[in-house]
Write a protein that binds this DNA or RNA. Sequence first.
RNA 1: UGGGGCGUCGUCUAAGGGUAGGACAUCAGACUUUGACUCUGAGUAUCGUGGUUCGAAUCCACGCGCCCCAGCCA
Length: 696
Amino acid sequence: MSEPRSLHFIEEIVEADLASNKWQGRVHTRFPPEPNGYLHVGHAKSIVLNSGLARRYGGKFNLRFDDTNPAKEEQEYVDSIIDDVKWLGGDFEDRLFYASDYFGRMYEWAEELVKKGKAFVCDLNAEQLREHRGTLTEPGKNSPFRDRSVDENLALFRRMKGGEFAPGTHTLRAKIDMSSGNINLRDPVMYRIVKAHHHRQGDAWCIYPSYDWAHGLEDSIEGITHSICTLEFENHRPLYDWFLDELGIHHPQQIEFAKLRLTYTVLSKRNLLHLVKAKYVSGWDDPRMPTISGMRRRGYTSQALRAFCEEIGVTRNDTVIDLLKLENAVRDHLNATAHRRMAVLSPLKVVVTNWPEGQVEHVEVQNNPEDEQAGARTVPFTGALFIERDDFMEDAPKKFFRLVPGGEVRLRGAYFIKCESVVKGADGAITELRCTYDPSTKGGNATDGRKVKGTIHWVSATHAVDAEVRLFDRLFSAEAPGEAYKDTPDLEFPFLKDLNPKSLEVVKAKLEPSLGAAGVGERFQFERLGYFCVDKDSKAGAQVFNRTVALKDAWAKEKAADEGAAKPAAAAPVKAEKKKDAPAPTGPAPEIEFTDFTKVALKAGRVLAAEKVEKADKLLKLTVDLGEGAPRTIVSGIAEAFAPEALVGRNVVVVTNLKPRALKGIESRGMVLASGSGKTLSLINPGDVAPGTDVK
RNA sequence: UGGGGCGUCGUCUAAGGGUAGGACAUCAGACUUUGACUCUGAGUAUCGUGGUUCGAAUCCACGCGCCCCAGCCA
């Protein structure tokens, strides 16, 4: 299909190791989650990486629970993680391990280090330990207990294990270097006393190994060759190496890569846990959650998730992936595989006046035009139909090529219909369309060769199945949730401020009858709407569908662009001065919500240059100094009111936090505020202030 | 201010001294019984400044910016 992609840096390391026979030809990776939450799409990246390496190089892949902290871990999480890893295709065969099963060996190794004089029991409490640790710029101080004798350390350590001490009173520490620039090397804690019930070990232990001590041992025991983790563990690598070298045991190579970050998404277990616990979502598998179980429930396929992980690559760059890329991956897979069905989400009744009373015709429709093998199905057509409300407009713009009064449209797979009259209720709302069909257009083709531009979906009113459909939008409305509030004091979870209040919309839909038999988890494309799957909340006769992802919609985009043009002007504080029908000062569609005044960033700018935009009567291309170093290019629809040269040197007010938008091929980064319209437009003057000054 | 890391189109990511390529996004067009898919085309990038070299994203130097680290979490 495509050219083989070049190797990423970890594959290069593995291939070099294979070439040099560093591990006797072995490749053995692992995925080591702590069972303290559900897995999310970031973990998917790691699973795909680790299991993919094993598959690619004929190696092995382990699933290992890093269950060294009984206070946070639960069996529920273990179960969900196993399900998720399997679902994703992470093939650990029979190699499902638990770090807690190694506690005995870890303890013996700890005694070995004590005997070597490389570890000591420290009586400092947590606060004292912190004081002794020093700071980022100052070295730490040795613990007063650092020079205890081996015998004393051994005795004390055994008493720790024996449960003789209270939590927090003693720790076992490695004896390394309190003056190291790397804080992890300042005599790190190897064991702490925890009196808590362990999900597997019960109360067998009251001392628990810390991550740094335990992790390398776990890898070593399992014969791991490449111990892959995320970038924040890079500072821990010297410690990983130190323990293994002191013990002289199998020493895997730790390799760090950048973890996944996604726009409009939070991906930390702490934050996800809060969303669940505080009931902002229905659970870990809420379809809006970026958890693997949530995405699965929403209708994502594991193939799509894996394709996404392959596509984003593996590097050490700290980057943020556009959520659109994920959505693109599902669309891509579902487009190829999902059967098409018709469903009407917002029904508008259509009566076909010349259809023979009571007649039912079964029209044949293809299941998937992308896949011949998918075959065809039959859909009942009658004189009483539902179509989508959005597919009819009384006062339609030229570019609207769906149904309009007196106009003709094709009903997918059936006939052309023509709208003869519009029936309205007392409140003026459209309640019904009266149409005629053309019998010579059966199957959707006109015998006289005449064309209709639009094809719309429909269901027979008498046959339609009722169902609940859940439409999801992104859970957060900010690209980086909480970023704008991260310095707000007393805000424990800033990302909650960016929660999207419209992330879930529930509608009552009319479905084509074949859908009534669809079982939980089955996926379909509802033609022209998106991909949907049957949710587990479905009951007999009361199905629930989740929208996995909408289809791309060029028409919606065009409409939004038109409406968006009016939006920023209304959102800006100059609203009162504007006429209702005034064109916006510029075209950029804002990313901010209409009501969100507080998010509009207004700054003073100085126009450095201005020129007319080719093939656009109203647009000027402005170069505006906003005190940011480089000036911005802003395209503004003010050419009717201002000659370009009249603007140079003027101060203007600019909305700076809009998503860049291309106008006539020019990227516009912001919007100039103006009031009035057409030739009588005036620019808002911020006064005589420096470019970049906030205008309130 | 200590230690570690990272800087290539809007966003990801290739190019490992020799034409800065791909994906997603954007825009324009073609096709279309899904305004989808597909196809065609367009624009936009090597953090900066010096140096080495016939030639630098790549090597060197000096800057600049961003990320991680002061849990008895992982």
